[in-house]
Write a protein that binds this DNA or RNA. Structure first.
Lengths: 214, 214
DNA sequence: GACGAAAAAGTCCAAATTGGACTTGACGGT
DNA sequence: ACCGTCAAGTCCAATTTGGACTTTTTCGTC
């Protein structure tokens, strides 16, 4: 019945946490391809198992628990929202695993909700009535990925274009406009924008240089 | 209240059909950006008005009514499904406009359902249980766009990749496999595949040549 | 079934883009 | 202040690209 799934998980021998790896697999299989499950060993504070990984986590890496401000008394942490390295939005929960009341591990479930956001956008475009002043809303966005996404969306909507059908000139113009509004401030913003626009990172820098030939 | 919408419609002076142009606009506005409305003049058999155009129709072009096997006795034609020049799927209805019982025009509404197909795919991936043999289903697909889409989907799913994150080698491999299964048979298939893979048309031919250096 | 027009298939190349390796710079922890 | 790490930005040979081009196929008409 249970097939060995080759490329979609990463294994390492684990202590008494071994029993939990199947739970990780089960969850990942159920929600495939949207869920990633990460098993942390608290004694070593490293990642000991990955099912359907899409973050850049690797086996044996430090768990970076402080990022989710984990306290040993916690039972469940979250749900909370993160941004993946490639800008996709992830919704997560973590459960603390105990043996004899001692915390030995953490099982962390990460769900990629980006496709569902796309769904909401499609439906929202159908349902919503065009608003005149929605600027204030966007100012509240904390994460610059979101701000850039919205900027690009409104930029393209205004001209009735979509990223995939834009030619070089139009993309260069968009890059220039983004730069003009300081979109390249966030860390890794250049890399992110280049990925979103379907350009090479080098190309983005070329465009920027071409517009600012100091 | 009513704003002039500049770039999103194309106008030509029309006879007594003029009254219908506002209806076209109204429908297009309501379903924007998913609906395109085309007004045909039956006396000249040409397109006289376009609201929110996304097909490549132009004003003054012949209506090509036989494509939808129009008979003057019809009141409503469809709904039926078409494939847009870029592979997007379109759902259409047409209403025959009459004056004194004489057919004078056709009002044709085209809805771009491709985004909704994407929505269904996202939800389907969440809901459905992996099937082993679904081949028979896909054999029934008549339109080669669909067949290619499915081929690419299962190809990428098998390897846990997505088109946007594939490198050149992987894309070349996919092109080769597509060619091996005769995917380049349909008309315009090469152009379509190149667009879907985010490659230039020339590049696809390069790949094909590189694999078949007769 | 031949003919011509129009579309698609395929070729070609100068110019643009790219991945990847590199150098430089910025930040954070100790 | 120092060091290690990661992002910013530069650079270049290899690859890809748009667009113009030629050849082939398709299709409607006679």
């Amino acid at each position: 019945m249970s097939k060995r799934r080759g490329p979609s998980l990463k294994t390492a021998t684990a202590p008494e946490l071994g029993a939990y790896t199947h739970i990780c697999d089960a969850i990942a299989l159920l929600f495939r391809p949207y869920a990633e499950v990460v098993l942390h060993d608290l004694t070593t504070e490293t990642v000991v198992y990955l099912a359907n990984p899409f973050s850049k986590r690797e086996l044996g890496e430090p768990s970076l628990l402080h990022e989710i401000d984990f306290k040993p008394s916690d039972i469940i942490i979250g749900p909370y929202e993160k941004v993946n390295w490639d800008g996709r939005r992830i919704k997560s929960v973590s459960a603390v695993l105990r043996s004899d009341d001692k915390a030995i591990g953490i099982l962390c479930i990460n769900v990629d909700v980006s496709h569902f956001h796309a769904v909401m956008q499609t439906l929202n475009a159908l349902v919503s009535v065009p608003q005149i002043a929605e600027k204030p809303v966007s100012l509240f966005k904390e994460d610059w990925h979101e701000r850039i996404n919205e900027y690009i969306q409104s930029w393209t909507r205004e001209r009735g274009l979509s990223i995939s059908e834009m030619n070089r000139v139009q993309k260069q113009q968009l890059v220039t406009d983004l730069a003009g509004d300081g979109a390249f401030g966030g860390r890794n913003a250049a890399a992110y924008i280049s990925r979103v626009l379907g350009l090479g990172r080098a190309t983005v820098y070329n465009y920027l240089k071409r517009k600012d030939p100091v």
